[in-house]
Write a protein that binds this DNA or RNA. Structure first.
Lengths: 107, 107
DNA sequence: GTAGGCTATGTAGAAAACTACAAACACCGT
DNA sequence: ACGGTGTTTGTAGTTTTCTACATAGCCTAC
């Protein structure tokens, strides 16, 4: 339950979960990042207490004819961290769109 | 002159230089990233041959009453890499704004 | 029965990015 | 002479992210 650094990736993953994307592969597709980035981020958020995780019942996987998924849900702490995540994303969005005008030197 | 990986940060720095922000501190302000991120990125771009660097003449710094600046310019290779950089930034912008809708399962 | 194609989770090792600091120069105030 | 503010460049050490796999379940086709 150490504290989690709110990076761009963790913010994206947290938002994806809050939007209803409940397992790793789905989050990967939603945010467009590879498994080697998403799964470690999910684990950090889990260990940090912002997410809780459990394996779906084998019956569901069997009914859908696919491997079992690991289901993530927002915790209270995770929900409380959402505004901070959105702030981080807004900050990043600004960085990408806005480029400060060139300072005129020695006018 | 090894090849440089086009990351979000290197793309931002490259764009800042192409927009006329010619030294490290200026790039830092333009892109809103700390020195510990920007200076290593500048060095990678320099070593990769996308930028060329030189110290401004001491006379200019003295005239403006400040420490000397290290001036960066786009090389031909750097200019050629700009579209790739913009593509990377567009990709990142999309990731931040768009969140894929939730897949309905077992309809 | 094994090869191939999805789905799904995961890891090892390298590269990059972040935090926190250091250092130097120029000035101003006391 | 010293501390403070501002500009500019930089580094050390840690954490995060990326690339490139690996593994496994479940299915279809050969």
């Amino acid at each position: 339950m150490g504290d989690v650094r709110m990076t761009q990736v963790t913010a994206l993953v947290l938002r994806a979960i809050s939007a209803g994307h409940r397992y790793g592969f789905d989050v990967m597709e939603a945010v467009g990042l590879p498994s080697g980035t998403v799964y470690p981020a999910l684990r950090r958020l889990d260990k940090g207490g912002l997410l809780s995780a459990h394996w779906e019942p084998a019956s569901e996987a069997h009914a859908d004819r696919r491997p079992r998924r690991r289901i993530y849900e927002l915790t209270g702490v995770g929900r409380a961290a959402l505004p901070q995540a959105e702030a981080k994303l807004a900050e990043a969005r600004e960085r990408l769109s806005a480029l400060a005008p060139i300072r005129s030197e020695r006018p």
